[in-house]
Simulated scan of single mutants.
Amino acid sequence: MTNVSETENNKNGNKPGILKIMQSVLAGAIGVQSNRRREEDFSSHSPWPYIIAGVLFTAIFVAGLIVVVQLVIANQ
């Protein structure tokens, strides 16, 4: 019964903050996200903040790798 009320609270406007979204995306990318946190994420109001944060994280990560590779190649 507790899970139902928590889910209803999330649907009633309990939006996750930017810090919580960033923590969830980083933990998911590394692979260390707890089951409780994953359930909170999936019961949140909308998946769009997580999708946008995931795409931005991936783009920044790939851009960072490209920069590092370019720096290593330029120094050879």
Results as ranks from 00 to 15, higher is better:
W48E: 13
K20W: 08
N35K: 11
I30Y: 12
Q33L: 11
N14W: 02
S46T: 02
G31H: 02
K20Q: 13
A59P: 05
W48F: 13
K15A: 02
R38T: 11
T2D: 12
A27T: 04
A53Q: 02
N3L: 12
A27Y: 07
L65F: 15
W48Y: 13
S46L: 01
V68G: 09
I51C: 03
S44R: 00
F42Q: 11
P49M: 00
K11I: 09
I18P: 03
N3C: 07
N10M: 11
F61T: 13
I60A: 15
R37F: 12
A53F: 00
M22E: 11
K15G: 00
I21G: 02
I73C: 04
S43Y: 02
A74I: 06
T7Y: 15
Q70S: 13
G17T: 00
L71W: 08
N9R: 12
L65E: 08
E39D: 09
H45V: 02
Q76K: 12
I73V: 15
N14H: 04
S43W: 03
L56K: 07
L71E: 15
G54R: 01
F61I: 11
R36Y: 08
A59M: 13
P16C: 02
V69F: 14
G54F: 03
P16E: 01
P49E: 01
I73Q: 08
Q76V: 15
I52D: 05
L65G: 14
T7I: 08
A27S: 11
V62S: 05
N35H: 10
E8H: 06
Q23P: 04
G64E: 02
K20A: 04
V55S: 04
G28N: 03
V62K: 04
S46V: 00
R37S: 15
H45R: 04
G64H: 03
P16T: 01
K15V: 03
G31D: 00
R36K: 15
T58M: 12
L56E: 10
K20C: 04
I51R: 02
I51V: 07
Q23Y: 06
G64V: 04
S5W: 11
Y50I: 01
A27P: 03
N9T: 13
G31Q: 01
L71S: 09
N10S: 08
F61W: 10
Q76C: 14
V32P: 03
N12G: 12
M1F: 11
S43G: 08
Q76F: 14
N12F: 07
Y50D: 01
E6R: 12
V69G: 10
M1Q: 08
R36I: 07
G31K: 01
N14K: 05
F57C: 04
A27E: 10
F42A: 10
V72P: 10
A74W: 10
S44M: 00
N35W: 12
V32I: 13
Y50T: 00
I73D: 13
E40R: 05
K15R: 05
L56S: 15
L26R: 09
I30R: 10
K20R: 06
K11T: 06
V62Q: 06
V4P: 10
A63I: 05
E6I: 11
S34P: 01
I73T: 14
